[in-house]
Write a protein that binds this DNA or RNA. Structure first.
Lengths: 118, 118
DNA sequence: CGATTGGTTAAGCATATGCTTTTGTATCGC
DNA sequence: GCGATACAAAAGCATATGCTTAACCAATCG
């Protein structure tokens, strides 16, 4: 389990938690302070901070402190990279079905010949 | 940490591991036996089986045993649901930028008026 | 048949995760 | 300055995760 995790590992790992997904969801609608993010979550403030640390560690969220308030914003490009991975899998999957489709079409044609012979 | 995880939790959690992503990647190119999946991975056979159990638990993979061989195949619809979540976030994010864009356009127009007054 | 192949189960262990409470520490509003 | 506010850091704890080894079972194959 030697922790040598890639950016993609960290992104998916971060998104695997419903509280963290809720935070991401909120941040798609614009930046927010930590306490603003904490409000709808049924847990203590430090717990929310730890979730934010995970999200920042995954580069899904960035933040900057202004006065005593920390403003968090979404890092959409990281979300994109996760989506891109899934997209690539789907692309390969669909490519495979195309091939299968063409193969079955070929069978159909040949099958038609067979049927003609009956 | 009371384990009451949603399908999406389990999907993202499953995808957070590089070995499991490698398995998914392999399966997008067609079904495979367990030992076939295990071959490129630098770990013991039981470890691979545990990864497969996680993937099946997340409904990303399904399998059936024929004789003494277990054939695994991708459950693409679950991959789609994960992609759909990310897609929805991006949609909201882009909608927000549209609004921001229109807002800035408005400012531009009004700013033009202001400049005209100078 | 007996050996091999492909998979399964269980136990054990180190580290990671997701919380909590407690205790700070700046900064703002008066 | 002084109390309230917003965050921060640290310690503790229960459970989860990602491996390992060892033992086991059931289909093949020679």
């Amino acid at each position: 389990m030697l922790n040598q995790s890639t950016p993609l590992d960290r992104a998916f790992q971060a998104l695997a938690d419903p509280s963290r997904r809720a935070i991401v969801e909120r941040l798609t609608r614009g930046p927010a302070s930590v306490s603003e993010l904490a409000k709808p979550l049924a847990m203590t403030f430090p717990a929310v901070m730890q979730h934010l640390a995970v999200l920042e560690g995954a580069a899904l969220v960035a933040s900057q402190k202004i006065g005593r308030v920390r403003i968090c914003r979404l890092e959409a490009s990281t979300l994109d990279r996760a989506e891109a991975w899934l997209n690539a899998r789907r692309a390969e999957w669909e490519r495979r079905f195309d091939r299968l489709g063409r193969y079955l079409e070929e069978l159909q044609k040949e099958g038609g010949d067979d049927e003609a012979r009956n």
